[in-house]
Design a binder for these strands. Sequence first.
RNA 1: GGGGCUGUAGCUCAGCCGGAUAGAGCGACGGUUUCCUAAACCGUAGGUCGUGGGUUCGAGUCCCGCCAGCCCCGCCA
Length: 621
Amino acid sequence: MACAGDDRWAPCPCSAAMLRIAQTLNGQLRAAMERAFPEAAQQASAAGQALDPQLAPASKPEFGDFQANGALPLAKPLGQPPRAIAQAIVAQLASEPAFAQLCLEPVIAGPGFINLTLRPERLAAEVGARLADPRLGVPVGANQGAGQGVSAGPVIVDFSSPNIAKEMHVGHLRSTIIGDCLARVLEFRGHPVLRLNHVGDWGTQFGMLITHLKQVAPEALEHPDAVDLGDLVAFYRQAKARFDADEAFQATAREEVVKLQGGDPVSLKAWGLLCEQSRREFQQIYDRLDIRLVERGESFYNPYLQKVVDDLNAATLLVTDDGARCVFLEGMSGKDGKPLPLIVQKRDGGFNYASTDLAAIRYRFSQAGDGASRVIYVTDAGQASHFAGVFQVARRAGWIPQGASVEHVPFGLVQGDDGKKLKTRSGDTVRLKDLLDGAVQRAEADLRLRLDQEGRTEDGAFIQHVAHTVGLAAVKYADLSTNRITNYQFSFDRMLALTGNTAPYLLYAVVRIAGIARKGGDLEAAAAAHLTFTEAQEWALVRELLKLDAVIAEVEEELLPNRLCSYLFELSQVFNRFYDQVPVLKAEEPARSSRLALCLLTTGTLKLGLGLLGIPTLERM
RNA sequence: GGGGCUGUAGCUCAGCCGGAUAGAGCGACGGUUUCCUAAACCGUAGGUCGUGGGUUCGAGUCCCGCCAGCCCCGCCA
């Protein structure tokens, strides 16, 4: 989407600071290549392409800021050594005054790489510009579709989605945390975002739940506030146990499903009570994790299900097979090599999750519904083939508009230390609440131990606040910092470690800067100073800080939060090196103010980045 | 049987349209503190990128085969 395509630095609607410089350089390099090799340029354009400078960030700091690899692939067609080609390109660049204002003399290295280093004064100017920008150089309003008439409809992020009357467990952790992060990034980029909680609030299990409710707590139907159902999980288990053991109960439960689907007011009321109870419990988790969601459960789409089937039939996509109504999928075959069906209506006439997902996708893209431009599903990787089927059918039915996109954002399992799916010692599913409690408790224990060792005293409110912040940050960061597609090994010890790529390490960098401010560093005043840098550690920090806009654009496009985590970790490391080796408060002017300005931009960048991960920061810890 | 994902250092993981000597962190070993929180920093050791082919000037990255693990495959979500 943003800056996508086969040419990374092609001009695009985003006009971000560092990205914009890269685009400018790309244009200058391309023009230089065209002047140096007009025949090759003509051939390329005849083939509908342009010469590609292959501009990329430098692979190592000693190579400068950017490298252009475009000379290498020209060696064979031109029949010249690649270094000679690079030399010719560089000679043409020399005649471009705008290039000389931007970069130092290019260096040809290795087999024919052109290494580019930005002029220091240019980097310092960029730092100054970011200090004056509350968005730190990250533009709003990318992804406008380059005038293709793409609707500016909302981006829908479908995530979390627990089941009513069941407890949120570790299985919901990744969807909730990753989905929230992606929503935050998209929002920050200026997209209207609809965060939808597609809760499982419909289905046959409600037959037994409602029957059980009517029998054990009939008063709840009259005075909803008077009854607290308490532990819904226990309630669910009781109902399930009776359902499995008692045939009469089973029969009543089945009748109850029919009554509920038929709109019986008492059944609906009982259903509503159960949903409300679940909602309260979910909300406690969401509040704790600072996650906003709009609940729109499966039941919302009930009125649209029949039309989905009817319209698929009218489009001649529907086939009745063994009593079930299916759409046979193209390019996906099952056993015997026969096409795989997507069942949209069961033999008994009932609907299933494919029907609901189709109704949802249609509603979300439809102008009468959400009118979305992009829909993102954050669910586990096991559902990949289900979504592939649903997307295909929706596409063939014409429910996904031109220019709109629908994406499954898959993630791997949460595993324990043993490499198997995370379970409690007794083999049960881990409750999300217990997992979060565990993280906070351990964070508190770590903190108390350290206070003890350092002879510090802090009040209870401080300890609670720090433990809560660090514990939850650790859980979120550990999840977000690995590539989501792989399975992720859950370990309290690793995520709460004070060193390495962890939340505490990043939070500590923010705390160090807050410490400088407390000890007399006026960060805000320094922002207006004339910036002069002399030390290697200062320049390393400057270069790292200026990468923010490119990183965020990348996360927006690839929907990979771990890219942002890696960046924030590297920024923290570079900052700690700077902090360790370059004095700030004790430096003479003008170095002192320039360094304070770097501290201000560093803390701003870390707070912004962590904020996009859904992690708040601390002043002391 | 068909399909998907994964396989990179002892462990946990990065690796961004294919680009320079494959990178971190942890752990191990060795160093650094009259100085802004040492929860830090500096250094050393450690890899046949599962395996065999292919494409390419160049492959951890792309294509094909094989091996291993996990997941999905008609009326649960």
